[in-house]
Design a protein around this nucleic acid. Structure first.
Lengths: 339, 339
DNA sequence: TTGTAGGCGTTATCAA
DNA sequence: TTGATAACGCCTACAA
């Protein structure tokens, strides 16, 4: 009962009276064995409580059965949901998720890539495109399947969503309602191509309508509820305040609603608000938030499937663009000139 | 420029004119080498673009520099926050996070434990206590540091929060306000000792005040906003509806506020609501949610530190109980008999 | 269908 | 301070 050595492949082999190779096959390619042999090996394995050693297996086979995922932060409804979807899809195929986050710091992201690659992952999921050349070289040199999410890039497979279009949808809806002075609360633009895309899309839609969104109608904030409130406050305190605000993420839009209401400004009566994401909370707001639906969970699921396909040899640099759509609820109403 | 073999330890050794052992030392214990040697090795390594192979290293050393975390789901503000805190604390020490989720399924959790252990983790973080004997045996036999969070257990280190006390805080606050018929929306009790503890605590407080919370005043729901709304709806439709509701998690409490308001029932005027967690959203609700603050991020950070300490040999089966406190905001008010 | 034997790339134990 | 060399536990041609 003292320090019972962990049982290894050879122990099982000895007990079953077969060679190590046979035991190895029994675990990985059972079809190759005679039914009787398989039976015996399994019995010995169970009797001895044999558990294959993942590290040894990884070293010998070159596969870790682990997929890495590097996200800006785990502490976000959006990314948590993507990871949850990835994790459950991957688990079904026997893969585990190794996660890292970089808190919106490009160098931290490069470091994370380096670390995960060194640790040995069979595939890697990243958020967004447009990273430093060094990071790209690392990825290319590593020779493991990589899938980008949200935004794509020619060199890698990608599961994307048209962020520009999302921004345009939000803006167009407000334009259709007659709004002319539209503001936006967005995340910090550097190193966040998702937010940059949404802003660009909104501006494009406005431009097509002969309108514009000058920088002073755009407030950059940290990706929190408080950021949404602060951004809204800043815009409302403008000499010529906007009559409608787009939240670059739903959390911002929700913060905008809360901030407006806390100032006695009715939504949508006094201020129209539109979000982008369609998180759970949005449907339950008072008023319910009009927003652009982003199929978050599906991004995760598709990313996982894409990686698995690439590992299996199929797939290649496939780009999948997931559909988005405007969900009209009650936080935006026609522009009514004061008086 | 074709398939350049990945450079290995021996390649660096050859280039630097030293033995493999020396290169290994240069990476792990630089102090043991003569300055000149170290210098030469580093140069060769950089020149050849040498990156230690994590799997080989893991096999030889028995350490993977990876910590496993098994949570009910990633798709939850609470757990996402815990993981984010763990991840950033661990990253600072060179560890990565391997995550798995089990969707509230005990067997899936056991399987996850088995998988992570087999994959090779240097430590493991689990949520809650009271798991099947099989799972406990696996953990004990594995011989890796384990830390339980939220709820503890004698056999393992733990970073906990007194869930019963949290429930009692919430209930006591309502009792002090004069409420006598208090309902609660909780998660599904089986396999969720956090929710069970909070409910038990609330009942204990009520019992001390000569009151009680019969089963018909308790609604079990899935851990979503919609669950909160449904639970609230069910309780409000009772012949003798409660005058106050405790949300087993803030999300439930928020759902309760939204459901009550959508029915034209004022909060706290017509219904008082208290939550437990203190998530970001709570402070921004209208009315702001009175709740019991749970130091979520701190749980993650402390859990990470505990594991690291255990790996370093210190620590043992330390139990840390983190303080909680009632945060009084404006969603609960004194009971006012109708008429 | 099964066995043999040579890696996989490091770490770690002895010596020197 | 450095060098041989044997593990680490499994996989996988190749052979039988």
């Amino acid at each position: 009962m003292s320090v019972r050595h962990k049982t290894r492949l050879v122990d099982v082999a000895r007990d079953a009276g077969v060679s190590p190779a046979t035991v190895s096959r029994a675990m990985a390619q059972p079809d190759l064995l005679a039914a009787g042999t398989l039976q015996r090996v399994h019995e010995s394995a169970r009797k001895l409580g044999y558990r294959p050693d993942g590290m040894a297996r990884a070293l010998a086979s070159g596969r870790t059965m682990t997929i890495g995922a590097i996200v800006p932060t785990l502490d976000s409804t959006i990314f948590a949901r993507v990871l949850q979807a990835m994790q459950s899809t991957l688990a079904r195929e026997g893969y585990q998720l190794l996660v890292a986050s970089h808190e919106m710091n490009p160098e931290a992201e490069t470091e994370a890539i380096r670390t995960l690659l060194a640790r040995g992952v069979d595939g890697l999921m990243l958020v967004g495109a447009g990273r430093a050349k060094e990071a790209k070289n690392l990825l290319l040199a590593a020779g493991v399947p990589v899938v980008l999410t949200w935004c794509g890039e020619a060199d890698f497979a990608a599961v994307t969503v048209d962020n520009e279009r999302a921004g345009a949808f939000a803006a167009q809806h407000l334009i259709d309602l007659g709004h002319q002075r539209i503001g936006m609360v967005v995340g910090h633009l550097p190193f966040n191509d998702r937010q940059a895309g949404r802003l660009a899309g909104a501006r494009r839609a406005l431009g097509r309508a002969g309108l514009s969104m000058p920088d002073w109608l755009v407030s950059q904030q940290g990706l929190t509820l408080a950021g949404g409130r602060n951004g809204c406050a800043a815009l409302l305190e403008l000499a010529v305040a906007p009559t409608a605000i787009i939240g670059g993420i739903d959390l911002f839009a929700i913060g905008c609603i809360q901030e407006a209401q806390s100032r006695g400004l009715a939504v949508p009566g006094g201020l129209s608000v539109v979000g982008i994401d369609n998180i759970d909370m949005s449907a339950h707001m008072m008023p319910p938030l009009t927003t652009v639906h982003i199929p978050t969970a599906q991004i995760g699921q598709t990313a996982a499937k894409t990686i698995i396909a690439q590992i299996a040899g199929s797939g290649g640099r496939a780009h999948v663009d997931l559909p988005i759509e405007l969900v009209v609820r009650r936080s935006a109403s026609p522009f009514a000139p004061p008086g």
